[in-house]
């Protein structure tokens, strides 16, 4: 399976357009993230990729094979992990692995070897006999990932695999993904978390069923237009209100301080008077490098 190509994908649930004329391509051996808030259309795209829904329009090819007509031909090379935990809760960790291995014809010595490798990564071995329903959220996700990887897929498709999982487990989860990517697995993952995007090769901002931007995490970050400053001052409501009155400036709380977002072409020197009137001085402003989230929010607001 060389490349994944999605062309002009559109799908609606009744009158609600979930995905609208969406296109993207993913090269072999790459990890690709679909990033966006809930309801952006990520799951619809993923489900269409896995032939779990027939889109209203559009063409999806996995490794040159048309999903709509020849999905059976790619099944063996595909690993899929849905958004909700979809293993057998009444079976143990090991039994789930055995079952999925069996479906893909991974049995005997090959299964044992594969299982041991996966146990090594997932650290699930001590829990081999535990029922899946009794696992913690993070362990459940690692088991689901292991089941999706048991047959050495070339393409791994994951739908919000770390939603609701604690930060440590999330990191472990991504360590496993990175390991398998190194071995040549192409990965498509949807996520609402910006920090996870930084761990992928390419990403696409998804919003309201459309594509806001696409590129490497660095490229996407650089899309931010304007400047951001941090002010270490208690973000009281009167202070924020005063700052927000200044033209081309948006002030928001940031932890115990606040962030000032200056529109493109604006510099602190240009608004020195207004800043002083609000009770701050230009020297208080510390420049901040915009991150992915800043870039995404700006693009999103541009759409609204």
């Amino acid at each position: 399976m060389a490349t994944i190509s999605v062309k002009n994908l559109s799908h609606a649930y009744g009158s609600v357009k979930a995905v609208n004329d969406f296109s993207f391509e993913v090269d072999r051996g790459i990890s690709y993230a679909l990033v966006g808030p809930d309801g952006a259309g990520k799951t619809t795209i993923i489900r269409a990729l896995c032939n779990l829904l027939t889109p209203d329009a559009g063409e999806i090819q996995l490794g040159g094979i048309d999903v709509a007509t020849d999905f059976d031909k790619v099944k063996k090379k595909l690993g899929y992990m849905p958004q909700t935990f979809s293993l057998y809760p009444d079976l143990s960790v090991e039994e789930n692995l055995t079952f999925y291995g069996g479906i893909y014809g991974v049995t005997g010595a090959r299964y044992v070897e594969k299982r041991n490798t996966l146990y090594e990564f997932s650290r699930l071995k001590p829990f081999a006999d535990r029922r899946a329903r009794d696992l913690s959220g993070g362990m459940k996700q690692k088991l689901a990932l292991s089941c999706a990887l048991i047959h050495d897929p070339e393409l791994l498709i994951l739908d919000e695999p770390t939603t609701g999982v604690d930060p440590l487990s999330r990191r472990q989860f991504w360590d496993i993904l990175t390991e398998f990517k190194k071995q040549g697995v192409t990965i498509i993952v949807s996520t609402p978390y910006m920090d996870e995007v930084a761990r992928t090769d390419r990403a696409c901002f998804v919003f309201r069923g459309g594509k806001l931007a696409e590129g490497t995490p660095e490229e996407l970050t650089r899309l931010y237009q304007g400047e951001i400053y941090y002010v270490d001052r208690l973000p009281t409501t009167p202070l924020l209100d005063k700052l927000n009155l200044i033209e081309h400036v948006v002030a928001r709380r940031f932890g115990t301080g606040l962030h000032l977002y200056l529109d493109m072409g604006q510099h602190p020197g240009d608004i020195a008077t207004e800043i002083t009137q609000a009770g701050l001085s230009v020297e208080d402003l510390m420049s901040v490098t915009p991150d992915l989230e800043d870039s995404f929010i700006q693009l999103m607001q541009g759409q609204q």
């Binding site: 896995c50 779990l52 099944k75 063996k76 899929y80 849905p82 909700t84 979809s86 293993l87 479906i103």
Partner: peptide, 11 residues
Amino acid sequence: NGTLEQLMVTP
């Protein structure tokens, strides 16, 4: 359980 859907993606 969602397992039917999971099975539909397998061969």
